[in-house]
């Protein structure tokens, strides 16, 4: 907007836009994934897609407007990661990111149960962010060194963003744990409710045996994850929850009861208009 725009300018509805060089929308175009790499990319893409969908539900409902902006940022980052992973996964079967997001059925998704859990109150959302962000950070840190150049490139960009998400979650864990009696009570309830779904994140699947220098084995991430979690929980003066463990099975297409309704909402409009472009 130039300073000397005059009142009587006929273009008073016109705004000068500063020229911006737009960065590439997707990293590392052009690779084709193998079947196994595509399978693994679905794990990552679906985790991020489902979590982004959950965070999107907070928009216009967050506890403070600044937090609305923060959660939307995280959702947008995750959606970007999802699109990159799904796009790559789709190359193995000549499908687009939208083909995968809108036209697969529940049993074809590879998301973990943890990301499928409902938002609940802010404490539940933060605990879910806490666990998932620390987990994704450990994956992407290692995935940067992947022998697959596309996965490596995606991880290189994603790790920085997920590091920020992890910091956001850590800050809120502290504030809810050490703020008021009510916030502490809600946080411990959320930890008890959600921690059963953490174990599934570190289960190795047969495909991991075939992806040796392409993807880190989930079980190898556990020590670093636990160290990171424990450090924050210590500051929160909380123990790592020690209760039930959920059976999981998301990587094999067996999901929680929550995924069905989530996908129904995500897919409904696209499915009402097969073949349409938007």
């Amino acid at each position: 907007m130039t300073d000397d725009a005059r009142n009587d300018s006929p273009d008073h509805g016109h705004v000068e836009l500063t020229a911006v060089t737009l960065a590439d929308e997707f990293v590392a175009e052009g690779g084709t994934a193998t079947a196994d790499t595509a399978e693994y990319a679905l794990w990552l893409g679906d985790d991020s897609l489902v979590l982004a969908q959950r965070l999107g539900e907070w928009i216009s409902r967050a506890p403070e407007l600044e937090e609305d902006v923060a959660l939307a940022n995280i959702a947008l980052d995750l959606l970007g990661h999802a699109r990159s992973f799904l796009r790559y996964a789709g190359t193995a079967s000549d499908r687009t990111e939208d083909d995968l997001a809108y036209w697969r059925d529940e049993h074809e998704f590879r998301s973990a149960h943890l990301v499928e859990q409902p938002n609940g109150d802010f404490a539940h959302t933060i605990v879910r962010q806490f666990a998932v962000s620390h987990y994704l950070y450990e994956i992407y840190e290692r995935l940067r060194a992947s022998a697959d150049p596309v996965l490596s490139a995606i991880a290189g960009k994603a790790v920085k963003e997920v590091d920020y998400h992890r910091d956001h979650a850590d800050q809120w864990m502290l504030r809810l744990a050490l703020g008021t009696d009510e916030s502490r009570r809600r946080l411990t309830t959320a930890l008890d409710d959600l921690w059963p779904w953490v174990a599934e994140l570190f289960v190795d699947e047969p495909v991991n045996d075939r992806l040796l220098d392409i993807a880190p084995r989930p079980s190898t991430l556990r020590p670093a994850f636990e160290a990171g979690i424990a450090a924050v929980l210590r500051e929160c003066e909380l123990e790592v929850p020690n209760g039930l463990t959920g059976a999981g099975g998301g990587r094999r297409g067996r999901h929680s009861e929550h995924l069905g309704p989530l996908l129904a909402e995500l897919q409904v409009l696209a499915r009402q208009h097969p073949g349409a472009t938007w």
Partner: peptide, 12 residues
Amino acid sequence: DGLWVREAAAAY
């Protein structure tokens, strides 16, 4: 709904 969250952060 967000009051308890804002209060927690302020208390911290």
